[in-house]
Design a protein around this nucleic acid. Sequence first.
RNA 1: GUGGGCGUAGCUCAGUUAGGUAGAGCGCUAGAUUGUGGCUCUAGUGGCCGUGGGUUCGAUCCCCAUCGCUCACCCCA
Length: 421
Amino acid sequence: MPDKVQRVKGVNDILPNEARQWQALERIIQDVMQRYAYGEIRPPIFEKTELFARGVGEDTDIVSKEMYSLTDMSKTSLTLRPELTAGVVRSYIQNNLQQISPVQKLWYEGPMFRQERPQKGRYRQFWQFGAEAIGSPHPEQDVEMIALFQAILDELGIAGSVTLKINSVGDSESRATYRSALQDYLRPHLNELSETSQIRFESNPLRILDSKDPRDKELVKDAPKIRECLNEASANHYEQVLKMLDIMDISYVQDDLLVRGLDYYTHTIFEFTSDALGAQDAICGGGRYNDLVHELGGKEVPAIGWASGIERLLLVVETISPLNASPELDLFLIVLGDDLRTQAPQLIRDWRIAGLSCDSDSLRRSMKAQMREANRQGAKFVAILGEDEFAMGVVQLKNFESGEQESVAFNQVVGTINDSI
RNA sequence: GUGGGCGUAGCUCAGUUAGGUAGAGCGCUAGAUUGUGGCUCUAGUGGCCGUGGGUUCGAUCCCCAUCGCUCACCCCA
C-alpha cells in the first residue's frame, strides 16, 4: 500500500462534529458584530512580506522567525498572514475607506499562520477573529472595543473565567520618556538580566517587563511604571478609559507589566486571559495603534483593535460552558423495496425545498438498518414508504419521540411536521 | 529553536513481568419469525503494535535513528 500522506505539523482537521461548535461560535460573533455595527472585511490570506515587516515590526518574533514566506514567479516575497491588523490597515488605505466614512468599524475572521512549536492552544495554522475601529482617537472608542469582546464572552457564558488586563504605553513621547527611565533603572543590573533581556535592553526594553525569567521578574518588580511616565494627554486618555469601564461595570485588572509583542501599539493595550487554559492563556489581545496607518503609507489616522484565537476560545467554552451544537434532522425517509428507490430523491428534494432537513439511506439497507440510521441521526420524524403507501400516495409518518404513527399524504407531510415542531 | 512525556483496532486504553507477530470497552455491521429505532442479548468486522535500521534463530516488546502527538520554555491569540 502506498504511504499515507500526513497532515502538516501543527495544523488541524476540523471535522463535522467540531465544526458545529465553530458554527455556533461564528453565529454569536456575527450577531454581536452586527449589533455593534461592525462590518465584515475579508482581506487575502497572503500579502507582500514587506507589509508585515513594516506593520508588525522587523524585530518582533513573529516577523523575525515565525513567518511562512515564499517567493512567487515574479520573485516577489509573499507571506501567509501571521495576523490581520496589518492587512486590514493596508486594505483601508488602498481602498480609501476614510473617504466612505471617517470612522471605519471592521471585523474579520480567518486562518493565520505562524511557524511556532505547537502546544496546547497554539497551532501553526490557527483561526482568529478580530475587530478594528479606524478613525477615532477618543477613549470612548477604546471602551467600545473592549465592551465588544466582553459582549461575546457574555453571550458564550464564559465571562466569569476570563480576566481583562489593561495598561497604557502612552504616545510616542511618553514611551520615549519611559524607555530611558527603564533603561536607567536597569543599566546597573545589566549583567543580571537574562540573555534575551540583555539583547532587548537596547532594541526593545519594554519587552523585558513581561519576561518570565525569575531573575528578570525580580528586577522588574521595582522598576519604574509606565503609568508614571505618561505625559498629560496620554494619562488623561487612559484615565478616561478606566472611568468609562467603571461606569459600564466592566471589571479589569491594571497590569503595569503588560506590554505587547507587536510594535505598533500606543496608549491603551489590553489582554483577556482565561484560567481554564494552560500556559497559552491569552484568548484576546489588542490595543490602540495610532501611528500604524501613517507608517503604512496612509494619513495620520488613529485606530484601535483586538484579535482573539478561536481554538483557544473554544477550549475555554468546552470546559466552562459547552455550546449546544447537536445535529438536527427533521425527517428521515425509509424506503422499502428497491423498486421504490426511484421515487425517493424527488420526495426528499421537495421536502428539502419546503425547508425541512431530510435524509435517507443510500446503501439500500434493510428497514431495521434504516431505522437505526434515523435514530443515530436524531431524526424527529421518520417517513416510511412501502408499496401500499406509494399506491395510495401516502407515507407512514412516525413521530420518533412519541412513537405515534399515522398515514399522511405526500403533500401533507411538511405541514404535519411543521405543526408539531 | 531547547527540554520532558507518549506513539498498540475508528475512539479510550490494557498487554508482552523475564523477546515466540495481540486483547477489552465503546463504535461499526448483522441477527433475535417474514414492514418499525432507542434498551437488552448474540455473532461478526476491525491492527505490517508510527516508520526505517540494528541485536537475535525470532522483536510490538531491547538498542539507534526518524516522523508525529503532547506538555513546558520561548512567543503569542
